[in-house]
């Protein structure tokens, strides 16, 4: 049982209380009190949930495609010198392109349906995962490979039992970055390539001056984002318990 974090609870309640009081005092329809937002969340819960599921579905598909393609691709680039020479400069050239900038081109080629949005998400997730895989495979200490050889493991066995697990911490760091990016770009993509999803819900709320409904959507997506993040953090801890035990913690986070 975790101990209650009293300062955080107090601070959170003070913030919400301040919001409530300021909004009530202001009587401005653009600035609804927290209780109104909660009520809107309750009333629109079904709609919001359906939209968020749509958003998450696309984010998950995009992320899955990026992982399935980019982890093996990165491992090959990292391991085979020639491929590294060919592709790394390209990766370094394309990486600085801010993901939303490819939206018009995704629109051009894939339209406003699922395909265009998923293409944007795949593009966004591709780089952190690819770079994680390249660096992960390279950071592998040659001694471990020698251990494998001395145990008379085959090349394939070495890859499966030594290279991949050893590269996993760095790959997972890339995937964690991609998860955050996937959600972010999923929302942007919906706002730009308008059809459905929570991004569209938010735009519609704005266009129709339904501020409380919009804020309810924001609260909902914050909660979902928190749990998605938490899920991947738990997955990471479970998969990489050995890594954290030997190094004593994660390095960078974001």
């Amino acid at each position: 049982m975790r101990r209650l974090n009293v300062p955080a609870i107090v601070f959170g309640l003070v913030l919400l209380g301040a919001w409530e009081l300021a909004a009530r005092a202001g009587q401005n329809s653009f600035f609804p009190p927290f209780s109104t937002v909660l009520a809107a969340l309750w009333a629109n819960g079904g709609v919001i949930a359906a939209q968020i599921v749509d958003t998450l579905r696309r984010a998950a598909i995009g992320l899955a495609i990026a992982v399935a393609v980019m982890v093996p691709f990165g491992a090959l680039i990292g391991r085979i010198r020639l491929l590294g020479d060919i592709f790394e400069p390209l990766v370094n050239m394309l990486r600085p392109i801010p993901p939303p900038a490819v939206a018009p081109i995704a629109l051009l080629f894939a339209g406003t349906g699922d395909a265009g949005k998923i293409a944007m998400i795949v593009y966004t997730c591709a780089f952190p995962i690819l770079i994680g895989a390249i660096d992960g495979v390279r950071a592998n200490h040659p001694m471990l490979t020698n251990v494998g050889r001395s145990l008379r493991l085959s090349r394939l066995e070495i890859m499966a039992f030594i290279d991949l697990p050893a590269a996993l911490p760095v790959i997972m760091t890339g995937i964690r970055l991609a998860v955050a990016a996937a959600l972010l770009v999923s929302v942007i993509a919906e706002m730009l390539l308008t059809t459905n999803g929570i991004g569209v819900y938010l735009l519609r709320s704005q266009e129709n001056f339904r501020i409380a409904d919009g804020l309810a959507g924001v609260v909902a997506i914050a909660v979902v984002g928190y749990f998605v993040n938490d899920l991947f953090l738990r997955l990471d801890r479970r998969l990489l318990a050995w890594h954290y035990a030997t190094t004593g913690g994660a390095e960078g986070q974001g």
Binding site: L184, I198, G199, L203, Q206, A222, G225, Y226, V228
Partner: peptide
């Protein structure tokens, strides 16, 4: 911070 960090900034734009 843990709660606000995963919130996509684009979601805040309309409001």
């Amino acid at each position: 911070a843990e709660f606000l960090r995963p919130l996509p900034p684009a979601a805040l734009v309309p409001l």
